[in-house]
Structures are given as C-alpha cells and as structure tokens.
Design a protein around this nucleic acid. Sequence first.
DNA 1: GAAGTGATGTTTTTT
DNA 2: ACATCACTTC
Length: 789
Amino acid sequence: MSATTEAKSSYLDQLNPVQRQAAMATEGPVLVIAGPGSGKTRVLTYRIAHLIEKGAAPWEIMALTFTNKSAREMKERIEKVIGPRANRVWAGTFHSLFAKILRVEAEHIGYPSNFTIYDTDDTKSVIGAIINEMNLNKEQYNVNNIRSRISSCKSNLITPKLYVNRPDLMEEDKLAKRPFFHQIYEKYVGRCKRSGAMDFDDLLFRLFELFQNHPEVTDKYRKKFKYLLVDEFQDTNHLQYSIVKKFINYEGSPRNVCVVGDDAQSIYAFRGATIQNILDFENDFKQHSIRIFKLEQNYRSTEHIVQAANQVISYNRRQIQKTIFSDKGEGQRIKIIKAMTDSEEGKRVADLIVEQKNRWHVSNHEIAILYRTNSQSRVFEEYLRHFNIPYRVFGGMSFYQRKEVKDMIAYLRLAINQQDDEALRRVINYPKRAIGGTTLDKISSAAEMMGRPMWDALPHVDLPGRTRNSIDNFVAMIKDFTQKAQTSDAHTVAEYIARNSGLMDELKKDTTVEGIARLDNVTGLLDGIKTFVEDDTVDELQQTLEDQDPNAATRPSVFDKSLSAYLQNIALMTDLDNADENGDYVTLMSVHSAKGLEFKSVFVAGLEEQLFPSFMSMDTPEGLDEERRLFYVAITRAEQFLTLSYAASRYRFGQERYNPPSRFLDEIGMEHLDAASPIGTSAKPPMGRFDRNTPQESSNGRSGVSGNFKPRGAAQQNVLRADPKTFKPSNPDQIQAGMKVLHLKFGEGKVLSIDGARDKRMATIFFPDLEVDKQKRIMLKFAKLEILG
DNA sequence: GAAGTGATGTTTTTT
DNA sequence: ACATCACTTC
C-alpha cells in the first residue's frame, strides 16, 4: 500500500487496508471482528495513537481489557508510537478502572472509599457462613453453586429485589432444591455492604448502579471519556455491556465506541460471557451509522494450521461468517502423537521438544504445552525435568492464594478496614488466641442482630472472662495496627504487623520444608511491599483524577505509599502478572490461560473424549460448541509447529480410564496432517491394543524432588543497576532538565523535562538500560536519584 | 478444641 | 490421587 495520503502519520502505513480503516474510523460506533493473529492489538493501539495525534487528550480515552497483562501490553505499544503521554490513557481491566472510579465516588453508594475487594475465597466463605447460620443442607446448598448463581444474577442485573419479580428464576431454584436462594442472596449482599466490601462482580455492578441512580455522576464520566474501546468483546457479560452503553449510549452522544472481538474465541460462556453482546451491539447501534470491519488475514500461523482451524470451527452451529487466511506458506503439517498411557504422552512430547530444539533451533520460550485441565501438567513436568528442559507451570494455586499469604493480607486488610468481616474471621484466632467456634458464632449472631460488622459487635458480646480478655487484647492490637497504618508507609506497617500479630513467630515454629517455604512466602510478600514503597514512579491515572478534581487533596495522591494504597494495588493482581518476560523456559498452561498468546511451537495434549471435550460440557450442544471454540483457540496459538497428542489410557480420579481419541481430531482434514500420524485410518479407539508395551522408566509418577517450580510472585526484584553502597541521592531541588542522573533501580538516565512546582515537581527521565517503559515519570520529592552531570 | 477417620467429588476461571 | 469436610474421639 502506498503512503501518499497519510504520509505524515507513518505508523498507519504498518496496517493493512482493513486494519487501517478500522483504526481511522474514530467517530461513531465501530465493530471489529478480529480472527486469531489478525493484528487486533495493533489496530487498537494505532487507533488510540491516531486519536491522540488528532488532538484527543490521552485521559479522554478509555480502553477496557480483561487482563492486566493485555492492558500493560497495549500501553507499552502506544508508548512506542506516541511516547510517555500514553501512560495517561485510561487503559486497564474493567475491574481495575471501575474500582478506581468507585473509590472516588464511594460516598454516593454508601461505601467507604477504602472498601475491601473480596476475592472468590472470601465470597465463598461468606456464603458458607450464611448457609451455616440458616441451618441449610450443605448438599442442596452447595457453596460453589450458590456463588455462581449469585454471580450470574449480578451479571444479569438481577438484584435480590428484582429476583422476586422473576418467577422463572424462582422456579429454577425450587427445582434445584434451593428455595431459600433468595434469602441467601439478600443476606450476602447485605453482609458485603456492611463489611465495606465488594466482590469482583460488585466492582461492575455497583458502577452500573451508581450510573443508574446518579445522573450527575454519570454525566461527569460521559464528558470525561470521549472515546471508548473494548477488547475481547466476545468475553463481556450482559452487565459489562450495559455499563459500556451507560457510558456511550445517551441522547446527543457522539457514540465513539469501538469494540473488538471474535465470536469463535469466546471461551468464557460458563462465566456469563455471551456473544449475544456482539449481535446486540450491531443492533443497538444500527441507527447510528455503525461500521463493521472484519480482520481476516492471520499473520501468526502457517496455512496448514489456519486451514485446520477453519475446518474445526465450521462444525459449530452459529457463527459470524468470516474466512481466515494466511499467506505465510503451507508450513509444516500438524503432527499427532498417539500414546498408550498419559505417562508415555509426557515422554513423547518431551522427546519431540528435544528434537525440535535440535533440528529447528526452537528455543524453550517459543514452546508451549497446552492442556484442558491443570492436573495434566504433572507428567510433562516429570519428563521435562528428566531432559533438563526449563519450564514454568502457570495456573494452579497462585502466590496470593496461599494460606500464609492470605493470613498476612487479612491482617493488613483489617488494619485498613475493620468492617472487613472475612479478614476478621481469618485472623481473630490465628495464631491461636483461644477464640473458638462457639465464640465466633456468638459474635456473628450479635453482629447480625445489630446489622453491623462483626468488629462493632466485639465489645458488646456477653462472654466468659477469659474469652473476653482475649477479645479485648485482639481489639487493642488491631487498633494499634490501624494507628500505625495512619502514620507509616506500607512496608513499615506490614513488618510491624507481621512481628506483633504473632504470625511470624507462629510460622517460625514449623521447621519442616513446607513450613520454611511458608515463612519464605510471607517474607516474599513483605519484600513485594517494600518494592511497592520504593517505587518512585507516578501513578498516571491517579494523577489525571487529581488534575480534574478540585477536592483531590482529600483523595489518595499520585504518590500514595500507604498500606491502603498497596492493598488497592494488589487486590486485582494475579499470578500471570508477575511472570518474568525474559526467562527461557517452556510454558505449561491451560488452554484458557493461553488465550491471546502465541508460540512458535504448540503442543495440545490430552485430546480424548471426556477430557477435551470435557465430560462436564459434552452433553449439551452449547457446551460442546464452547469446547470446540476452546480447541480452536488452542490450535491457533501455534505459529509454525502444531502437535496434538492423546493417550489410550490415563489416570483420572485415581483410576485408570480408557477414552477414545477426541472427535475434534476427526474434524481436521487429512491433508493437514503429518503422514506419519496415526489418525486418518479411523479415529476410533484402538480397541484390543491395550497391551503394555510402554517404556516403564518412571511409572511411579511421584518423583522424590518437589522443587518449587511454581511462580513465586512478589519476591522478584529488578536487577540493581546502581550499587546501593556507593549510591548517594542528591538534593532533588537541584535536578534540572538535561542532567544525567543515576537511579537506584533503573540505572543511568537523562532528565528530559521537569514539571510541577515545589512538592509536586516531577521529572520525565529516559533510562536507556530498561527493557520496556524506558521513560519514567518520577516524583522528585521521593526520588532516589544521584546527579552525574 | 485438636486430631484422626471415612465419605465424597472432582473443568475451565482473564477479574 | 487428592483435597475437603462432616463427624468422632480424646
């Protein structure tokens, strides 16, 4: 394509014609249907860059994503095009951006601005307690079912009040033998509210409610955000789309909204996501000259892979018509590995990885093993270890989910928000303070009676002398922590709490390997808090809020290092967020977690009926379609090498099971399969060939070593670029634009500019040594900078 | 209130 | 296999 008309904006030349149209159609509603590897992030980032070039202020643009990682990636890529201004674009996850707004507007909805965010475990624990108190049967009222039912109500805008107007739903719950669902739901909502807590769904739902009931507030944000972008639109639920419409769909609105998605990659229907939103979007904006673009060229994979993917997805019943194509050449055919056992599958995959490394010089980080369930990782770990191939397992239990970490965080939460019942329950008797179940029941029923959080009930409960004493000591201790949190930074308080709560002493008592690991995790958390406190870069989003808000002084500042700020920061973090980008390891993860990623070589394992497709989903057409989309996502992660594997027998639930090869294998045409592959004759189970000719080298599965291969999260530190011993921070007042400076963590940098006055002086500094985000904005008051000249 | 026993149910989960 | 949990026993 020639660059005649848009010569001045050269970045647009890097787009193909459809991509470019989509990026430049800045006014009015736009729907982009983007196949896998079709450059959708590229379109989004160039679209934002283009908006800013055309004069939009960065903070007038909101880009909503599903993961922190993709938000970060987007920001980095915008920064490459337009520089550090990019950091003031409101790009983030639905949950994190909405939480930021809710903290500012909390008073309108009767929440404290330092509200706690309840994670799934907290939620389940609240529901469990309610079921207990109501003396309901725990089998009929399964906590997980109730939790997802509540979540789905919220995602469909059904409050407890509205629920009683829905005879269909009440009938469903009656049939499911849980007629008291409504009462549980109502209690749950009430209890979160009085605990000053929001669960993940509340972060969305409460914003919707705020907009619904406070037009003046809605108006403010409608004016603020002139352009809205939504990534992975196929994964939005009804509630998320409703909020998008609140922002954008009103009388007189320019409706500058761009949603990007792919119905074929929708894999979260089980959580309420619905591709109906894509179809609705088309309808809802029909009257407003909506433009629709289809990105159909795949720049990621070779032709065999793309065509196989097309064949597979064509078996799904309903889909938006599109033809994905690649011009990367035929490439390698798809290999299929047939193993007798799951253990042999592990070995054969590891063998092939070794071969690919030798023959094609594929690096570890270019390889991924994907599977349907996390428990499948073990056999691969075993053989990768055997071949000394470094690997990393994603998923499973995250750092923040570990008991000891949660305990520590519960203390921190309680110091900030004493209304937080879940935190209180967690630590009131840990370490042991002789406050048992009986006492806890008394406290919680007193709280229920008062309609107040448990903390408020503590002084009023009638208790035997010894218990009373324990409670009083506990209360005094927490008050002391709260006091401390008001005056010290997050790390100082956290250390203080770790020591004085008795938690550290308790952990130190356990000298087993696991016990030491637990203590390590808590110190790791403390290190993480230290890093947070020492980080002297500015929170750009907070700053735009401050810039625009006359009452900013009463709000958290851009440079807030309080415990409260830290907790807000980590509440929405996951394990994937601390992945280190530069390591050379093979990636092992579930297909779900692999969405959005790409690898030169991909192995999709466990392609057997009952496993992939999963036995939980395969009996309904909708379930099966979703499994197929999941398989589609899996194979479209591969750039050049795709290997599919299955085993005739596999240990599942402690028993050896035999399952036929997955039907999905049959859906790939022979012409795309490696001739040496065993499929094709017929994908029927190889009945009668169950003889045991499997190599038996490591059949016992349980290897003695249990090295910690799981991500360690918080503990990772930046490489120190300056020697802390010789480092002497200079007087920040003397720092001027143009100077060369040394930063303790970022190394040498050049001061590009200074803005702000006195306390708020800020420097924009360029650090050439950094991998990403080379330009940082640093608050001089706190800076750790040495002037070099 | 701890510690041991037997029954039970197992997917995926960006936030 | 493995974790979770209700229930028993000390």
